[in-house]
């Protein structure tokens, strides 16, 4: 099969039959991605399915600036669900900043229907079973908190 010739203004583009294009996911590179750079871009996009972002552009940039958070954020929901369960849980990412102090930190806000006492106990359990093991990796740029879910 001969290649297809597509003319676009002053450029001609030849698309061969076995073009990689058909195996190319929009924006995210070829399938079976072996690039670390594009894998990280993909993961940041995938985080949008795992969390609600309070300010998507700002938080995406913050995560890209602090690339070591990507895998931690990617794996965090499973750790949270293991402790809090999956029912009636919403995970929100919120960026807290104090420009005067030069301080910024991303918060995973776990919105749940638990009463205050249960929520504090689960928060403590999550800290002991997960967060304490990653604290040295987050460089004070990531924390978590629990809030009542307002239906």
């Amino acid at each position: 099969m001969l290649p297809t010739l597509i003319e676009q203004n002053d450029q001609s583009i030849v698309i061969p039959e076995n073009s990689l294009y058909k195996n190319y996911f929009p924006k995210y590179g070829p399938v079976d991605e072996t690039s670390v750079f594009f894998t990280n871009q993909n993961k940041v996009k995938q985080l949008e399915e795992k969390y609600e972002f309070s300010n998507i552009e700002e938080i995406r940039k913050f995560i890209m600036q602090n690339g070591y958070l990507i895998d931690i954020l990617y794996e965090a929901p499973e750790n949270i669900y293991r402790v809090f369960g999956r029912e009636n849980i919403k995970l929100v990412l919120e960026l807290e900043r104090d420009p005067e102090e030069g301080w910024d930190e991303l918060f995973i806000v776990i919105k749940s229907l638990y009463n205050a006492k249960e929520a504090v106990e689960l928060e403590r359990k999550l800290f002991d079973e997960w967060f304490v093991h990653i604290m040295d990796k987050v460089n004070n740029k990531l924390n978590f908190t629990e809030e009542p879910y307002g239906f």
């Binding site: 583009i13 990689l20 190319y24 070829p30 940041v44 940039k61």
Partner: peptide, 22 residues
């Protein structure tokens, strides 16, 4: 994205320019 055949289609040059997360 374009794929340009080289070496009698043994090889491809895959060129992509795209916006990414800044």
């Amino acid at each position: 994205v374009i794929d340009i055949p080289y070496e009698n289609e043994r090889d491809l040059l895959h060129l992509a320019l795209m916006t990414i997360i800044p």
